[in-house]
Amino acid sequence: MKLQGYHTPKTLEETLSILDAEAKRGRSAAVLAGGTDVMVRMREGRMRPEVLVQIEALSDLAAIDESAAAIRLGARVSFAQLMTSKVIAQHAEVLALASRDVGAPQIQSRGTIGGQLGTASPVGDLLPPLVALEAEVIARSVDGERRVPVESWLRGVGVCDRRPNELIMGVEFRKVSAATRSLWHKAGPRRAQSISKVSFAALIRLSAERRVEHIRLVFGAVAVTAKRAAKTEALLAGQVLTPALIQQAQQTAMMEFTPITDLRSTDAYRRRMVGVMLRRGLVSLL
């Protein structure tokens, strides 16, 4: 199948009707945002859309909107925007931390959050933070808008919950309280342009006596999607954080994942890194 069409809709309505029409015709249409995945995958033959729908004109989707309790990111918000936004620094720092470790400046200015959600890669670096933030994906089509928690949006390696006629509008999540600490760590083969061997995002709020009041621990690249360490979260929730507890959490977290061996790393290494990253992150809170 060859590329047969290239649309440059001017409005949201036009975009949605194009996506709908193409879906009804049975043609595979791909939204083209920053293109940092689409262009690479098409060239490698791993993605063969028949139509591209370029959304550069939808400037509303490039906004970071703040309300009293929540933040909404348009699908076209780039890594670079997340890195420099004051709102993000204040209310969702974990996204800024992760964005800094994505690719290199070129990718940071082109790549978008919508692209992360559309590609749904196990190594997408913003996905663990979004899961930790319990963000909701907002998807819209001519049939209407729906909201899906990121955790259920990510369904498998490169598989997401998007319907063929849907446009990802963006994500929304509650602001992170000032008392909550954000943790982020990425292990890759080098300092830039590297794909995660393991990534780790966490949001943790401790009481004055270090009791765990809120905890989200999410790992990337060790499962088919970014995945919470649910057992470890349960182990820690409501407990007072102590070195002994952290030790126990490390063991639990390592057993929660069954990573694979591939070109980039080994299962054994990845599993150990899950434990090390978690312990180091938690120790940094003491």
């Binding site: 290199a104 083969p189 080098r190 300092r191 590297s194 794909i195 070109l263």
Partner: peptide
Amino acid sequence: FADYKIFTSLD
């Protein structure tokens, strides 16, 4: 170069 990594100036 995506999969065969050589050091960049940052490294």
